[in-house]
Computed example of a mutant assay.
Amino acid sequence: MNPKPKKPFYKRWWFITLVVFALLGAIGDLFDAEEPAASDPNPIVDSDVKEKPEEVEPEPEPEPEPEPEIRTYTAEQIALLERSYTDFSEEEIASFANMIRDWDFLSEEDKTLYEVNYLRLKDEKKAYDDEKARIEKEEREKAEAEAKAQAEAEAKAKWDAFVAENSKTLGAGTFYSPDHIAEGVYDTSFTGSGNFFITGNGGLDYNEIGGSYGVSKIRVYITDTAEIEIRGMKVNFVPVQRTPLPVTGFTLYAGFWQVGDEIPTGRYEVKPGRGESGNFFVFGKNNVNEILGGSYGVESVTINVTDGDIVNIRGMENVTFTPTN
């Protein structure tokens, strides 16, 4: 009879039991590792460990105030104190200016020593400077007056020469500027009676009857492109300069008049002379076109004029401008 064969050890009950217990132990360790450790509500603090106190930076000690600067006068400057300011040279005047600058930095002892002469020299300096300024002002005003007088004399001589050259009488015919008469402002009068025309004159054209059947004079401005035509009479040209008219009122005659150079800016009531009638215009910023006087015109017109406007009077010799509100 053959003996019964033995089971391998891994099939024996005791080995299987050991394996089961080993697996159960491993599973238990796994669950213990996943649970968080409970915190101790009362941790133990080492009583020997002390908190380090905050370091406090010491306040910086205040810097000592600097000693006031003390200056002294040189021997040459001290010698100046005994002299008169009017005797100083330019270098000594500059040196005394430095002494004034340094005065507040002297010691009290030096101030007491020099004060009387120092204050005397300061007074002398002020009087000297005031007198020097007065003389310089007088000399400057004198030079300006002389220059102005010379300029006026030269301008007058130039104007007198222009008047002498261009005061002339032109008879009937056609004349051109500047060949026959220079550009400028003229008062014209008439010998005889006839027609007077100026064309090509930059918008300042004239068409007047002069003499016994028209006006006795006209204020004209002739440009260097003007063409002058005279019929049936002679025309006398006298150069004039534009001058400001009185702001209290004035009377004008036929021609062109400049606001600003001649007529003051403002508001006026304008009336023709007794028995006169003609056309009245204002050109520029303000525009007026009226017939004054006569059976077809108005007795007066109220106008505003500003710098640059031009007033044109035609056919009348006495047109009165009265300032009004």
Rank of each mutant, 00 (worst) to 15 (best):
G192P: 04
D179M: 12
K122G: 09
V238I: 13
F256T: 02
P60I: 03
S95W: 03
S212C: 01
G200Y: 04
D179R: 12
V235G: 05
A37V: 14
N201R: 01
D32V: 15
D102N: 14
L119M: 12
R231C: 03
S47K: 11
E90G: 12
V238D: 10
E34G: 06
S277P: 00
E136Q: 12
N201P: 02
L252V: 08
N201Q: 01
K234W: 14
G260D: 05
V116L: 09
A38K: 11
T248A: 14
I78L: 15
E141P: 07
V305C: 11
A133W: 10
D29Q: 14
Y186E: 06
R140M: 13
T302S: 13
K142F: 15
E54S: 10
S177K: 07
F197E: 02
S300W: 09
A226W: 08
Y176L: 13
G294I: 04
A75F: 09
W257D: 02
Y221S: 09
S193R: 07
K234E: 15
N286R: 06
K271N: 10
Y114A: 01
P58I: 15
L113C: 00
N279Q: 11
E299N: 15
Y10P: 01
K142Q: 15
E67K: 10
L81N: 02
E109S: 13
E138F: 14
F162C: 04
P178I: 01
T302N: 09
I222E: 05
G232V: 08
D46Y: 07
S95F: 05
E229Q: 15
R71L: 15
W159H: 10
K234P: 06
I313G: 06
G210N: 03
S193Y: 12
I222C: 04
T302P: 05
I263G: 06
A182G: 00
L113Y: 08
T169N: 11
Y176S: 14
A22R: 00
K234M: 14
G275A: 03
K125S: 12
N2H: 08
N289S: 15
I70C: 03
I263T: 05
D104I: 07
V185D: 13
S216P: 02
V240F: 08
N236K: 03
I230C: 09
E269F: 00
R71K: 13
V49E: 00
E152Q: 11
G214R: 01
A79N: 08
N325W: 05
I209D: 02
L106E: 04
S89G: 10
D129Y: 11
L245Q: 03
K142P: 05
G28F: 13
R274E: 13
S47V: 05
A161V: 08
G255N: 03
E108R: 13
T243G: 02
A127Y: 11
A75H: 06
K52W: 10
D129A: 11
P41Y: 06
G203A: 03
Y118S: 00
L245C: 04
N279H: 11
S177Y: 12
I263H: 06
V301Y: 06
P41K: 00
S95Y: 05
M316L: 06
T72Q: 09
V305E: 09
I291D: 07
G232P: 00
